[in-house]
Design a protein around this nucleic acid. Structure first.
Lengths: 209, 209, 209, 209
DNA sequence: CATGAATGAGTCTTCATTCAT
DNA sequence: AATGAATGAAGACTCATTCAT
């Protein structure tokens, strides 16, 4: 549990501060107790606040959860989009920084992966959760696929299948995340990155040494 | 001897029949309502039985859920183990039938994938769930890795990394499952299989034509 | 408070029995605590049952309240309709038994009047309550008016205003109820009846001696 | 909803101004949301003020409600007492202006009637509410009765029952109010007045032409 | 074996009231 | 005087579990 220091904070704070604090506490709660084990009381306790305050800042538990998911989605999206926006990157380098972003311990740790899969697990039942991730997932799939297409064209990989490679990358991202979550002793950030880069090297040997 | 005419569905049934019936209903319930939305009343309704009966055949909800997960795990395990047990299969062929088993619509459909991920989502919080999958996952990881090692040795792929390939296969299995679940229009059983086979062909070109 | 004996009742009872029991307890609760002071816990306590059972037999508090109001409305409606259905009654006699029914202590006591006015007080805010009374009130208004018209015609009261008299009767019913509720020492069942009969005698002297 | 303009009012105001403003907002709130649906937040919103301010000017919600009821009671009392205080009125004329006051749209509208009945509905449960109305109701009942007595004596109506007529008048006031509230399309201010005057004419034909 | 009414603990939510600013 | 964030108690509702029939 990563504590959210309630110490020096004044009794009352700006709503935006409280909202961030409560979302952070929600991530902790889901990671530790699971989605079905997460209660507003647990969130409030972790944030060092009263239960009533959660409903004051988020109108309902559902909204709190949706905004928590949204927060994670936006954070991840910003990470890889910022990375590929750096000037002077070749397509293969852009693909590389996308991979890096998804396995950078500073951006994504087991706690957050746990939250992602908590939501994935309920995704079918609660359409509301899908809204927050579909666009972002599709954006990344399309971006990866486009980069593969560029690389294939520029590098003369006549038989390459950029669409298939794009989909396989998505699967590798999610699949390594899951295995890092469930079997952390066998699956590490670095190994995941290495295997994905090896996969890309297999497809585009002249671009991924 | 009682001469009471039996309905076609007898009011009482063998315990084992009821257990299977209730596990099937539980899978439906989880797939439709999510794990947190699954209630014993919902399971009973889907099974066409009374609520009290669930607790009669399974001592608690937790036990019902654990046995449901166990059922899925055993079913999947049996599928690929039976497949590779066929006589006269070369290592590459064994790896191929493992892949086939994981993307055979008769064995694994979206409903079951939904259940798998429902449990994955709670995996951190409920150690009980892990017990039922860890052994089975590790068994498959070890089997795949061993097969890769065999292929690498026999085929003279000096630079191959069987352990890494084994882990990547796990990730591809889980990752394609998740994407087939969430984005069924973009990810299909057949494409998943094709991409994984392409990945293997990239690593072992002389064994996976 | 009229106790609902929980004594000899078996642990489990037919739903219809429990529903009646809970509606009776609800009437007591509203009469004693007011509508806003009525809680499911209070109803359950008065019925000698657990709180969960209320939601088991009535899906929500709103439904319980609506069915309670409906019960009172149907009871009152049945009382006066049964009374005027007796064979061989002249119109003036029918009007008389309608008045009697509304001030018969066996049918309407202060406890029930309290419940009526509890609902009237919320009538504007909760349209749901109106549905349960409008038809019944209008039916009575129309019946009274029709009887006045008959009497006026048959008795040759040329200047009588049956519609106005009908509305005044409605007002007298409700107004005496309210005053019997709030000022029981000044307003009694019998006096209310007497004043209403005097009002009718003033309008139709030859029919109401 | 009758808006309480928060526009040009300065940020701070005399306590008495705020109190009147909050009572007006309370009347709106009760009329629209019912007594149980009335919250301090709703009152504050309607007054265009902050929630904390309500508790600042009225020490508790109960006090606010009691003072709101008191305000209505005093207003109505003042209306009819001022009316009969006009010089040179005969008893029958005084009774007439009392009736007029109770059905003058400028004094009593559906919004206020809704509030009256909201309180009546809770009257049994909350003795506090009774205090504010009992004296006023009894004062009016006694005044009406005394006037009837005067008329009966002066007019030689030997068989008249002033006490009964007084009680019937109370019932007609309250009963017509209720029906005007619930069935505004069938019951109007003017008709109510007309029927009550007809009732008085029936009892005192020589005084109420 | 089977039923379904009954229980009661747990949770979300609302809201009067407080209080630092 | 005024604000609005914060608190915490209270209540509706859900649901796993029990149990008499």
């Amino acid at each position: 549990m990563s504590a959210i220091a309630p110490d020096k904070t004044p009794r009352t704070a700006a709503p935006e501060v409280r909202r961030r604090q409560l979302i952070a506490a929600t991530i902790d709660a889901i990671a530790e107790d699971g989605l079905s084990g997460t209660t507003l009381a647990g969130v409030a306790r972790r944030a060092g606040l009263s239960t009533g305050l959660v409903n004051f800042h988020f109108r309902s538990k559902d909204i709190l959860l949706a905004e928590t998911l949204d927060h994670l989605a936006q954070e991840l999206r910003a990470a890889w989009r910022d990375a590929i926006a750096a000037p002077g990157l070749a397509p293969a380098q852009k693909l590389t920084v996308i991979v890096d972003a998804h396995f950078d311990p500073a951006i994504i740790d087991r706690r957050k992966i746990a939250v992602w899969f908590a939501f994935f697990g309920e995704t079918q039942a609660r359409a509301a959760y899908r809204r927050h991730t579909t666009d972002i997932d599709m954006e990344r799939l399309d971006a990866s696929t486009a980069l593969c297409r560029e690389i294939a064209l520029a590098g003369g990989y006549a038989s390459a299948d950029p669409e298939g490679i794009g989909r396989a990358l998505e699967a590798l991202f999610d699949g390594f995340w899951l295995n890092m979550l469930v079997y952390p002793h066998r699956f590490s950030h670095d190994d995941a990155k290495a295997q994905i880069m090896a996969y890309l090297a297999g497809n585009f040997p002249r671009d991924f040494g």
